[in-house]
Structure formats: structure tokens, C-alpha cells
Design a protein around this nucleic acid. Structure first.
Lengths: 216, 216
DNA sequence: TTTTTTTGTAACTTAATTGTAACTTTAGAA
DNA sequence: TTCTAAAGTTACAATTAAGTTACAAAAAAA
């Protein structure tokens, strides 16, 4: 069962949400302060967090930045802070959604459903499909057999979709080598093996800079 | 460059959005009716659609279900229909977000960014677009091919937007050379190659001082 | 063990990038 | 206006980065 953690000091909201969410198949845990929430998060990982901003022992924005971001749990900010600045700030911080009070429970549930369904663990670029969970690569739906290192390389590129990955970054993360005093020719050879196996031009070389895969 | 299609018959909204979105590195195409939008979508695939609901030739919800869902393009519904039922309906249909009018442009952009997973690392000056993530330069949305050094130079200029970059600064950061005892003529040659490739007057020469790119 | 696969290195090829030199133009000072 | 230093332009040879191929060492599988 999907667990949702509500961090909110207004007990009424907790009460009414609990019932509605449970009807929709969710389990709701309510914590009325940041310290209680922090304690809870030490030994449990909910699937989603609904976070109020003004709480008795601190500010929700800070909590989001310092605690939630690090454990990487989808979060909806739910607050009376309805200024444009707060909303934009919350969204740009990385919150998955931002709802202002008073709010519609049905809308909240619709937005929760949307976030929890967006578990986009499969990426398709041209004829290549990459499955993050399974660490599998398909070309036109047929599985490709890559060596462990090739897979790691490809994974790194897909994790950095639309971003250039430099050779030094690659050497650092895949080979745990630093600096440029290492034979980075190995990288070249690997990329060419990978490119040959994929037989697709999704990997772009940026001479002197690195490699990149672009979303379509 | 990311293309956003706005389907909206109120021309004022289109006008004001166009400017703000372009500042954020997006290209906005406006269609004032569903039939025009359908025609456009026949041969172009935008990265995102912003959809109004009440349109001269039909209902946006239907259009979303029958047309957009099939071609699978992220969509934000932007409408005056602010009833709980409409919002929930829109979200449950599969819209990626639902904003009600009147709306904040900044919030809309934050929500667009979130959907397109972009952290605004794109700068546009005149017809030149610079993408920090991809390390790519576009002229009128078409990619330009620059050499590594040319790219580094341009990067330096964009990092110092509105500020002069002196030749000694350039020699120092790009060539790792200090002082002025080096042949700084190389810099001149590079800037001219760069200027020629950009074929745009965004790079300003300040004789005896350096070079500069200005924001518009 | 043997066999197969994976990995790292080396040597070579190719194409693009880079630095320099020689010459021309321009902007601003006198 | 002329003069001069700075910047623009062009061309070319040297250099370099990436692509390619081949192969032996190391690791994993049979």
C-alpha cells in the first residue's frame, strides 16, 4: 500500500484527508511538526510527502531543501502561502506540485495520483529503449546484450539525458579515476563499441567536450 | 529549441506569453482554434501544449482526449473553468497540469519548466540561443557547429553576459596563459571565426578593452 | 580445468582543430 | 585630416582528438 506522509499541524486537515485518501487506497501518516517528521523519516520511506510550510518548529521550505531533497521523495507543498513568489520558489526548488489553501481534496487526490503514476522508468529515444529498473536496453523492442561497462556508460548518459557528460566525468564515475593524466582513450574505444552495438545515432559526440544523448 | 503550442483564442494571452516564454528559451506557436491546431499538429510535434478549454470551434477536453492523447504530448490545461469537477476531470484525463485563469505567468513558466525538466540553462540573444546543458549553440533554432575552443570562448562570453571580457582574461581562462607577453593575436583570429560562424552582431568588440555580449 | 566473454592497451587512420604568419582594414588620437 | 595601434581577414602547415582495428590479459562462465 502506498504510504503518504502529511506534515501539517492543523489536525482538522489531517483528519479529513485521512478518510478520503484511504478511500482511494492510500495510507496516510500525519506528523504535526518537522522534528516528528524527521524522526519518522529515519526509519520509513513514504511514497509521497505532503508538506505544509508554516510549522511550529520551522519552515517547510528549509525542510524540503535540507531533508526531503536528500532522500528524494516526491513532494506536494500544501500551504496558505499563495504569493506568486512562494509558488514559483517552491516549484523551482523541485517540489512536484504546489497547492494553496483552501484546497479541494479531490484535486489534491488527482494530483497525488498523477505524481505517483509518473514513475517514468523507461525512456525511449529513437529506436532505443532504456529501462532504468531492469537496466535493460532494447533496440526496436528486442533486447540488446551489453557488457557491464557498456551498460554503465549508457546508464550514465541516460541519467544525464540532454546534458553533456565529459570524458573526465566518465573516467571519474565509471573508472574512479581523477584528473586527465589517465589514458582516456579507453573511453573512446568503449563509446565506439557501444555505438556499434546500438547501431543508432542517439549518442552524440562533442569533440573536446564529451558525449550526450538527447531526448527527442 | 523547445517548441510550445498554445491553443487559445484570446490573442492578448498569446502576445504576452510569447515574450516571456522566449526569454526563457522557448519557442511559442499560437493557434486560435482547434482546427488550426489540428492542422499544425499534422506535421509538427511540439514539446508541450498549453490548451484552453472553451474555443470557437469546440471543446478543449474533447480535443485533448481525441487528438492530443493519441500523439502523446505533455499538456497544461489553462482555462477559466475553475470548478473542482473540471480540474479533477482534466487531471484525471491525463493532463500534466491544470491552471485556472487568471494565472501568473511566472507560475506557468515554473510549471512548464518542471514538466519539461529544464532548469533554465538556456540564454537567447537575438537569433542566437546558447544551451549550457547541451553545450550547443543555435542560430534561429538551427544548431551551429563550433569547435571546442570556439565554444569555450562563447561560453565565457555568455557566462559574463553584459560584462566585458578582456583579452588577458580570455588568454588566462581558455589558454591558461598569464600576462600580456603572449601572442594575443590568436584571440583576434578566434573571435573572427566565431563571429563569422554566428553571422550575427551579438559579439561586440571594445577596442583596447575586450569583447562583450549584451542581453537584449 | 577449458572456454568464452570482457576489458584494457597499443598502433594506426582520418578528419577536424589549432596556431601562426602575412597582409588588410578600422577606429580613435593627435 | 593623417597616423598608428588594434582588430579583422585569409591561408596554410602542424597538431590533436576521436574513430577504428587488432590483440593479449583478465575475468567470468561452462
Amino acid at each position: 500500500m502506498m504510504k503518504i506522509l502529511l506534515i501539517e499541524d492543523n489536525i482538522n486537515i489531517g483528519e479529513s484527508l485521512k478518510e478520503s485518501l484511504e478511500k482511494n487506497g492510500y495510507e496516510l501518516i500525519v506528523k504535526t511538526s518537522l522534528s516528528l517528521a524527521r524522526k519518522y523519516l529515519e526509519f520509513t520511506k513514504p511514497n509521497l510527502i505532503i508538506l505544509d510550510i508554516s510549522l511550529p518548529d520551522g519552515n517547510g521550505f528549509d525542510f524540503f531543501k535540507n531533508v526531503i531533497k536528500k532522500i528524494n521523495i516526491p513532494t506536494i507543498i500544501l500551504t496558505a502561502f499563495d504569493s506568486e513568489e512562494d509558488i514559483v520558489n517552491g516549484l523551482n526548488m523541485g517540489a512536484d506540485d504546489y497547492l494553496t489553501k483552501p484546497f479541494s481534496i479531490k484535486e489534491l487526490i488527482a494530483r497525488i495520483n498523477k505524481i505517483l503514476k509518473i514513475n517514468k522508468n523507461i525512456i525511449k529515444v529513437k529506436d532505443i529503449t532504456y529501462d532504468f529498473d531492469k537496466m535493460m536496453v532494447y533496440k526496436n523492442s528486442l533486447p540488446l546484450s551489453l557488457t557491464p561497462l557498456e551498460l554503465q556508460l549508457l546508464n550514465l548518459l541516460f541519467l544525464n539525458l540532454n546534458h553533456v557528460v565529459s570524458r573526465s566525468m566518465i573516467l571519474d564515475t565509471i573508472w574512479n579515476l581523477t584528473g586527465n593524466d589517465v589514458d582516456d582513450h579507453t573511453v573512446t574505444v568503449y563509446f565506439n563499441r557501444l555505438k556499434k552495438k546500438l547501431d543508432s545515432d542517439i549518442i552524440k559526440t562533442l569533440k573536446g567536450i564529451g558525449y550526450r544523448i538527447d531526448e527527442e
